[in-house]
């Protein structure tokens, strides 16, 4: 197994090779890479893949890691069942 087969995103099954290929094609922000591969859109919300993506971008573009942006944070922080939200939302109506 080569390092390229390593999984960067376990939620959406994205390998290091796919990530590097996209960066080589010119997709140079987390947001753009996310929209093509769905990286960072799964249940972990980028907590696993985020730093790896930014490190790869930093190495490829020469930009400092700290200048690169992580994706937008989307609520909720962790997955919540819709039925629980519905129940809680209806509590005042009882």
């Amino acid at each position: 197994m080569s390092i390229n087969d390593a999984m960067v995103c376990r939620c959406s099954d994205v390998s290091l090779k796919e990530l590097r290929d996209l960066i080589n094609e010119g997709y140079h922000t987390f947001e753009e890479i996310k929209r093509i591969t769905r990286i960072g859109m799964g249940p972990c919300q980028g907590k696993t893949c985020g730093n790896i993506v930014l490190r790869e971008l930093s190495m490829a573009t020469g930009k400092d890691f700290n200048e690169l942006n992580m994706q937008s944070n989307r609520p909720p922080v962790v997955g919540v069942k819709l039925s629980l939200i519905a129940e809680e939302a209806g509590r005042d109506e009882l």
Partner: peptide, 30 residues
């Protein structure tokens, strides 16, 4: 931006219209 009201209203609607779908977890809203 995303609102809390949307999440609550949508959860109630989906529980009414497609009840089993309400057993799923919300991953993201936008």
């Amino acid at each position: 931006t995303s609102s809390w009201e949307f999440l609550e209203d949508m959860a109630k609607t989906i529980k009414n219209v497609l009840p089993p779908v309400a057993n799923l977890r919300v991953v993201r809203q936008w």
